[in-house]
């Protein structure tokens, strides 16, 4: 570059030519980078007014636990009252607030999904503000979790991923399951594809992270499609009793099945009605 600019300036005899070429080169590089750079870097940025609105909402609704700048609050005994939010990303906010887990009603073992308290615009603003605290996963685009158009082979592959990665906690039929100390993995029944995707990339609460670098976005779509196919599948064998496996099935066998046997035994052995009329002959 220096050689080129030196030669050009020498030919045209203008001391400014070299500087102009350098500036043009820099502009071109910057322009091309802006065009081809990953979309994620752009979608993470929101306009200043949205961020300002998000910060205002954050100060009112979130700062009492997470700190004014999302730095988290440490208790005297050393445990976290609420975790720091730098680096959790917009996806985490969209999941936690969008499913009603945040704001929490009270501190406890687990933030439960409740009524959603913010409207979509407010959630977007909150997410935009939290995204400025540190780089983290951004809200997935619709194309990432849109499951329409997947064929049965892809859905079946989603089932393989599901059984390998998810069933240990969320149960084979996505009905959820118990964890230690009163925590639980929630049922995925009725959870939107976007929120399932966000849960995988952010790892809310005790859930591990399943980052896009290892479980690819296309594979996540297959998983979501499989979960949705589970929920729309008919019960071939009659009532599934919540798809909880031996827990509810065993309870039904003990209470309904053995209960009916006991009732019949009591009926067989009970005294039948007697007549006061006396013997026939």
């Amino acid at each position: 570059m220096r050689l080129l600019s030196a030669r050009l300036s020498a030919k045209r005899r203008s001391p400014l030519a070299g500087v102009v070429v350098l500036l043009l080169g820099l502009l071109l590089t910057g322009g091309v980078y802006a065009l081809v750079s990953p979309a994620q870097a752009q979608s993470g940025q929101a306009d200043q007014s949205t961020i300002a609105k998000g910060r205002a909402l954050f100060l009112v609704g979130c700062a009492s636990c997470h700190g004014e700048n999302g730095e988290g609050i440490l208790e005297k005994k050393g445990t976290q009252y609420a975790p720091p939010l730098a680096g959790v990303g917009a996806a985490a906010v969209d999941f936690q607030v969008g499913t009603g887990r945040m704001p929490m009603a009270r501190p406890g073992t687990q933030a439960e999904a409740r009524k959603v308290l913010y409207n979509p615009d407010e959630i977007k603003a909150l997410a935009a503000f939290v995204a400025t605290l540190g780089p983290g996963p951004s809200i997935p685009a619709k194309s990432q979790y849109d499951i329409s158009g997947l064929d049965s082979k892809e859905v079946a592959r989603g089932g393989q991923f599901w059984r390998t990665n998810c069933t240990a906690c969320h149960n084979f039929a996505a009905a959820g399951g118990a964890l230690p100390d009163g925590r639980y993995a929630p049922s995925l029944n009725g959870v939107s594809p976007k929120h399932i995707y966000e849960a995988m990339i952010t790892g809310p609460q005790q859930m591990p992270v399943f980052a896009d670098s290892v479980v690819k976005p296309s594979e996540k779509r297959q998983i979501i499609a499989y979960v949705k196919s589970l929920q729309s599948a008919p019960n071939y064998g009659g009532n599934a009793l919540g798809s909880m496996g031996p827990v509810t099935e065993g309870m039904a066998a003990w209470i309904v099945g053995i209960g009916a046997c006991v009732a019949f035994a009591v009926w067989i052995a009970s005294h039948s009605v007697r007549s006061k009329k006396g013997a026939k002959a």
Partner: peptide
């Protein structure tokens, strides 16, 4: 899929 250390976030399970 092979895995690089950079693909693993804190709290990630593979």
């Amino acid at each position: 899929t092979p895995i690089k250390p950079g693909d693993m976030e804190i709290g990630q399970l593979v």
